[in-house]
């Protein structure tokens, strides 16, 4: 593991927001204040799931000015590897859990004259913290938030009540959609665009903005990748001298940790670069799922990100 100490926390609230989403509140076990954080940060929550350790990153959605606790929202993924299922089924008020110090890979650019935010579904959570922070700083922002239907549009009413006309809501089932080309054309110079949601939405928003000539530095996106499920494989750790078996629903990083190797990580979602490993030998196919490695690195088969990426073949040796 890397760097900073963990925060021993107690779950004080579990709220069923709708049929798919639950909200969790954590306070420090020692009763002290949580570290301040910047809107867009996430924390990594450690789960002890019957002897299996799971670590999932969730965006902090509470007001960054409120140091009494942290809140996250978790969408249940019935086809996933089990982290969100654990949070929904097993985490109850009073439970002790470890969470990481906040890390921000989706920060606000405070130079922006205006912050234009586009959220899809559970992608709303980092924006809730960012809007609270901007509201306190007197920053100008506008949110466009799309959800499948009224029931699944978590926090829509609360956000409208808090920020009024700065919040624009869209429901797929009612045939409402963001008129993105018009929206982007109408923005004042110096606007920064932020998008968080499903992969398709992120690609759509970024490519539309690029086509309109938005500068790259004004575009911000965050997509947390859940490590994909795949076939089991074996990896040799050259420096530790250990061979690790990676199960089908386990990530390579999780399997390495389960073998007692202290590997570096931060986001566990293929975005931050912390767990990057050199590949020494690979007889087979490296299955890259991260956002971190460059195309050249992927083509050269020189590096791999154990947090999300996998392997298919007869022999893989990495420098760890």
């Amino acid at each position: 593991m890397s760097g900073a100490s963990k925060i021993p926390a107690i779950v004080t609230e579990v709220v069923e927001v709708n049929s798919l989403i639950k909200r969790f509140r954590f306070v420090r076990e020692d009763g002290g204040p949580m570290p301040g954080f910047s809107g867009g940060s996430h924390t990594v929550v450690e789960m002890e799931d019957d002897g299996r350790r799971r670590l999932n990153a969730y965006s902090l959605m509470s007001d960054p000015a409120d140091r009494s606790g942290y809140e996250i929202s978790v969408r249940r993924d019935d086809g996933g590897r089990g982290g969100s299922m654990f949070m929904h089924a097993r985490v109850k008020p009073g439970m002790r859990m470890q969470i990481s110090q906040p890390v921000n890979l989706f920060g606000l650019d405070l130079r922006a004259k205006k912050h234009l935010m586009i959220a899809g579904g559970i992608g709303i959570t980092p924006f809730i913290a960012q809007m609270a922070q901007l509201d306190g700083l007197g920053g100008r922002f506008e949110l466009h938030y799309a959800a499948r239907d009224r029931e699944l549009g978590a926090y829509m009413n609360e956000l409208s009540a808090r920020y009024g006309e700065r919040v624009h809501r869209y429901y797929d089932t009612e045939g409402q959609a963001i008129d993105l080309p018009t929206l982007l054309k109408g923005q004042p110079l110096g606007t920064h665009l932020y998008v968080c949601g499903p992969k398709g939405m992120i690609n759509w928003v970024l490519s539309t903005a690029q086509k309109q000539g938005w500068p790259k530095g004004a575009l911000h996106s965050e997509e947390f990748l859940a490590p994909p499920v795949g076939e089991a494989f074996q990896v040799d750790l050259a420096l530790s001298g250990v061979t690790v078996n990676v199960g089908a629903t386990q990530s390579m990083l999780e399997a390495i940790e389960a073998a007692g190797i202290d590997a570096p990580y931060l986001c566990r979602g293929g975005a931050c670069g912390q767990c990057e490993c050199k590949v020494r030998e690979a007889e087979g196919e490296l299955l890259h799922y991260d956002h971190w490695l460059s195309d050249e690195q992927k083509e050269a088969r020189s590096h791999i990100m154990p947090c999300v990426s996998r392997f298919k073949g007869s022999r893989l040796v990495i420098e760890l």
Binding site: S2, G3, A4, S5, F37, Q101
Partner: peptide, 11 residues
């Protein structure tokens, strides 16, 4: 630079 971009709060 790579190291510093990942510098963590509290560390």
């Amino acid at each position: 630079l790579k190291f510093l971009l990942q510098l963590q709060h509290g560390a």
